[in-house]
Design a protein around this nucleic acid. Structure first.
Lengths: 222, 222
DNA sequence: GTACGTTCTCTTGTATACAAGAACGATGAT
DNA sequence: ATCATCGTTCTTGTATACAAGAGAACGTAC
């Protein structure tokens, strides 16, 4: 784990809690974050809540409009596309590095994560979670802790939007076979090849991007 | 500019001020950030100062140790290497995208920034600043605003350490001729070629990395 | 009936007071 | 003389009070 179990300040704990709610879709983009309500909910005063919100603002997960309160950040289609484009490249980079530096424990973790994906291929929600773990195993295998952190951060930030495109036709089966090819390339030390498969695997393009935008608009209507 | 001139909250202004001091080397890695002193200095109470520090912690520029105050973040050599590795890849990505999407105004901005570098080749400090602008012009030319923001963020975060390696022998001349080749490749639409030159241009490797670590240790002694 | 202005309320922004933990120093013992 | 322990002091963490801006609601005028 990256967020070490060491002692966290209250503001940091609160940030994680709120962040989880955003990532889990419990708090939806555009939703207002009332300081008093949050303070009541967590049994603290507004002061640490405000500190947590400032942190979330820096993480890009909430937007603070001076004197007008904080809302869960909502991304425009353009920005969403841009973020997926960067995510794809970060993951491709992880692949290139991982292939070069793959240690025995990394290989084991990768295989295990892949088998976990296979085991839950029928359950979209479970696959979604296992998929996340598989990708994180690749980040870790890059051997670059900073890169790993950045990748996880962006992954988390995109999570609310990924949820929207869970049940696209055949997506799980395609995803799994792409994983298989990525894993094979990594094990063979073919970093460039793994990266080449990873990029379109991550990046939401063409038809899939249209689907995502459609669900976004649906969300906006709610 | 990315930080739009729109209304900023006090905490955000304070963050920028402190951030500037860190980037400028006025506050050095490891230095303690006393809340009361900062509050006095900026004529505000500790509350907005604390909010600014939380933001800086998320940006990775300060480290907050619960109950023990905030210090300017100091990076280990390993982490520094990792960050330069990611920076190199982000800039390479900017090159690839910029070559594909280069608009007329981007081309003009690039040329102008390049000529500005040429004009101050004799002055290391001035070159350093002009160099920054040149790189930022490439980020902007990528046409991916999110990528641009991330690149600028990381550039800023590495700034205190780049300062340390200002006066390495022949660095300015080498840097400038690399810029020339990158610019030519971008104008020719050769994104991969530009990226290939950019990577080692940015990444601190081998000898140069040792130099950087040496200056780091010097700094630690002070 | 609609649009604009005024007032009232609700929320955010900031300072300050108080509590509690950490660092530092002093005093004593071995 | 050195180390440990206790106490003091300084700093951080949190709540709360107060100020001020934003938004809503109501009333009035056209």
């Amino acid at each position: 784990m990256i967020d070490d179990a060491s002692v966290l300040s209250t503001a940091q704990r609160l940030r994680q809690e709120i962040e989880n709610d955003i990532a889990a879709g419990h708090l939806v983009p555009g939703e207002r974050l009332d300081e008093v309500s949050l303070a009541n909910r967590f049994h603290v005063s507004r002061t640490p809540i405000r500190e947590a919100l400032q942190q979330l603002a820096m993480a890009g997960m909430v937007e603070i409009r001076p004197r007008r309160g904080a809302v869960v950040a909502s991304l425009t289609p353009e920005r969403l596309y841009e973020m997926f484009e960067v995510m794809a490249e970060l993951e491709a980079m992880c692949c290139r590095l991982a292939a070069r530096r793959l240690g025995p424990s990394d290989a084991i973790a990768l295989e295990r994560a892949h088998r976990a994906c296979e085991a839950v291929r029928q359950d979209h929600d479970a696959y979604y979670r296992a998929n996340e773990v598989f990708h994180q195993a690749i980040y870790a295998a890059s051997g670059n802790v900073f890169l790993e952190e950045q990748a996880r951060l962006l992954q988390r930030r995109l999570q609310p939007y990924r949820r929207l495109q869970l049940r696209v036709r055949n997506r799980v089966q395609n995803s799994f076979s792409e994983h298989e090819r990525i894993l094979a390339a990594l094990m063979a030390g073919e970093g460039e090849e793994a990266a080449r498969i990873m990029r379109p695997h991550v990046q939401v393009q063409g038809e899939r991007f249209s689907d995502l935008i459609a669900s976004l608009k649906l969300l906006g209507a709610a």
